[in-house]
Computed example of a mutant assay.
Amino acid sequence: MCVNYHTPTREQFGTLGAFSDLPADWRWPDEVWKDYLAPIIRSGRDGLPEPCLASYGIVPRRHIPPGVKPFDTMNARAESLGERRSFAPSWRRLQLCAVPMAWFYEPCYESGRAQRHAIGMQDDSLFFVAGLWREWSEADGSMTSSFTQITINADDHPLMSRMHKPDDEKRSLVVIAPDEVEDWLACRDVEVARSFLRPYPAGRMKDWAAPQTVRKAPVESPNLSLF
């Protein structure tokens, strides 16, 4: 499962449609991990795509009840979207989002041990991954947003089947074609939305060795004023 990816820069994000005028205080890291803030695109109240700064993992760590063993929600399996309590409400309400990326990371075991690989587009272009979002009420009365990425089986995918341990089920993020992003966000039927959850052509993708050089920073509570 993908739990770490590389975000577009603020300048790159400005090239994705009409999103050049982001709030001046929006900040996000180059590499995103659980509970880090990152930009997503979702459908606004007017039905048009809008940017949002949200935390990675649809159930933020701070909202896991005391006494409950911590669990991860960075990835949502397409096969059980309507069943898992963490994801089903957002799926049924069609709270869909598109997560912009430069590339994402997966472990490759072809050498006999885990090696971190980056996976992106052949032409080095930015791309979007299908996801879900939800809102949370915070203790100070503010509202924040969070998101997850949707994954599908990739046992037969020429590139993604090379990732993860040999005996593990192969999974892949759902890459949304650039000309389908607005249609994905505008879905008003879960079966129509499900039709977008399909493999992306391996010939348009590439991977390369990417040893981890950036230390994962400790997570602090998000700056709620950003939302």
Rank of each mutant, 00 (worst) to 15 (best):
D168F: 04
L81P: 02
W208F: 04
F196E: 14
P65Y: 09
D21H: 03
Q115R: 12
S125Y: 08
I152W: 09
R61E: 02
T9F: 10
W33L: 08
S137E: 13
P51K: 12
R45H: 09
F128I: 09
L226A: 07
P51I: 08
N153L: 12
M101Q: 08
W133A: 12
H157C: 09
P8A: 10
E138P: 06
D179H: 13
S146I: 01
A38C: 15
D124W: 09
Q95K: 15
G141P: 03
L159H: 01
R93A: 15
E135C: 09
H63V: 05
L226K: 14
V68W: 06
D25L: 07
I152H: 07
P70H: 03
A102H: 13
A202M: 08
V192K: 15
R84H: 10
N75I: 06
G82H: 10
W136L: 02
D30L: 15
D167M: 15
G120S: 08
F13V: 13
V68I: 10
R10M: 04
C187D: 14
I41D: 08
P218H: 06
I119K: 01
D21N: 04
A78G: 03
R116C: 04
P166L: 11
L53S: 04
V3F: 03
R77P: 01
K34Y: 06
G67I: 00
K165Y: 07
Q149F: 03
R194N: 12
R27Q: 14
K216F: 12
W91R: 15
A78H: 12
K216G: 05
A139S: 11
R194M: 11
Y200L: 08
H117S: 03
N223K: 11
S142N: 04
T213M: 13
P178S: 14
V181F: 07
A118S: 09
G203Y: 06
N4W: 02
